[in-house]
Simulated scan of single mutants.
Amino acid sequence: MTQGYLLLEDGGVFRGRSVAAAGTAFGEAVFTTGMTGYQETVTDPSYAEQLVCFTAPMVGNYGVDDGRLESEASHARAVAMRRLGGEDWALWLAEQGVVALDEIDTRALTLRLRDAGAMRAVAVSDERGLAVDEALDIVLAQPPMEGTALVAQVSTAAPYVAEPEGDVRVALVDYGAKRSIARRLSRAGAAVTVFPNVSDPDELATFDGVLLSNGPGDPAPLVEETEIVRSLLGRVPVLGICLGHQLLGLATGHETVKLPFGHRGANHPVLDRRSGRVLVTSQNHGFAVAPSETSEATHVSLYDGTVEGFDFPELRASSVQFHPEAGPGPHDAWPVLERWVAGLTGDPDAG
């Protein structure tokens, strides 16, 4: 094993031990506070173009399993850990081509990102191969995440049936959809067909419901995707999750903003304004819908007041910023998907 480093665009250097793939990985450095779910995190398409710092002190200690994959392959470009918890995890990361460093001072790195915000960075597996000064010049030449559209590179190229059996037919628009979303929809009683990020709204409207998935990058440049969402409103029940929530916000006249360091982890408190209940939720996003006091904003983050949910009854549309499929995470929000699918069946007790 060789000595490598993680370099931030502000010049901060965090040295550690290379434990997976050789090479360099450029992207946005972010941190996640989840205590479990490291394999789901790395394979979540919402982590595209990002270097993920795990705040948990040991990562990889319960092994790897194909059933935990949220997509076919890794989307995170690099991983930073305090301590590697298992060789199986390191071998899997190497097979995926992920640069991974352990013995990183992840506490110091997390505090830096929390105070200064997520920033461009590079993970280098062998410090002898790329000098820090040279690496910094390359990092500063990389485009920032703000203004970057990424969904086209993670979406499916063609429609396919993900879950064939169910009482209702749901079109899942793939902006970077996690597999667990289709699984939870299926368990709730839906047959699921997955569509590309840009699809014919007339075809989508033939389904009983349309779910707008999670995904990476800035929602603001997704003009065509936003127009498709707008054209669906009032024609078919729509539910947005994460990026899908942000696109619904844009389609209804709200604004999105880049968060300083994002919401990533499985312990984010969200207030349901209608019931007064606080949900502990799983989240992974760097952009959000700006705070709003409008009546359609049904959920808010108790961290920063950003909008965590919408309900537009007259448009037959609703959304949540958090992940109700909870892959991984707490199950407080499972009923969001269950109630939505039940409502598509005409169940008078749904909602």
Rank of each mutant, 00 (worst) to 15 (best):
G262V: 00
G346H: 02
H331F: 15
G129Y: 03
G85R: 02
S231C: 14
V289T: 14
I228F: 12
W89Q: 09
G85P: 03
V289D: 13
H263I: 09
S125N: 00
T193S: 03
T43E: 07
S292C: 15
V170H: 03
L51Y: 06
R107C: 13
C53D: 10
G262W: 00
V194M: 08
P269R: 09
L172F: 03
L8G: 00
S231K: 08
R339D: 15
T156K: 14
N267T: 08
P260A: 13
F14W: 02
E165Y: 11
R128E: 03
G27V: 01
L279V: 14
T281V: 09
T106H: 07
T148K: 11
N197M: 14
G189M: 07
L211I: 10
T110C: 12
P330T: 14
T226E: 04
E203V: 05
V79H: 00
H245S: 11
T298L: 09
V300T: 04
R107W: 15
R264I: 15
L250D: 10
V98E: 00
F14C: 01
R77V: 03
G4A: 02
D218Q: 02
T33H: 05
S282M: 02
D126A: 01
G4R: 02
A171K: 01
E70R: 01
A190E: 04
L279K: 12
L101C: 00
W89H: 13
T193N: 11
P324K: 09
R179W: 13
R114M: 15
R120Q: 04
P291M: 14
G85E: 01
P237G: 11
D208P: 09
P260F: 13
P164D: 05
V98S: 05
A100G: 06
T206K: 15
R274E: 15
F261N: 14
T148Y: 14
R273N: 06
D208G: 05
A90I: 05
K258R: 12
L233M: 06
L136S: 10
E72K: 12
R77Q: 07
R83N: 06
V132I: 02
A21S: 06
T281L: 09
E40V: 09
W340G: 09
S301N: 03
A158K: 15
R179V: 12
V59Q: 05
A80F: 06
K178D: 13
T256P: 05
A350P: 11
M58L: 11
D66E: 13
E165S: 08
G346A: 10
A78V: 06
R264G: 15
H323E: 03
A21R: 00
P221D: 07
R235N: 10
Q39P: 08
P313K: 04
R77P: 04
A76M: 05
L150Q: 10
G166H: 04
V79F: 01
E293P: 10
T206D: 14
A121F: 02
F207I: 03
L248H: 02
E72A: 12
A162S: 11
P45N: 02
V223Y: 07
S125V: 01
L150G: 10
R277F: 11
D304E: 06
V154S: 09
A288V: 12
A333K: 08
V173H: 02
L84E: 04
F261C: 15
D44V: 03
D88P: 13
L84I: 10
E225F: 11
V236P: 08
G60C: 05
G37T: 05
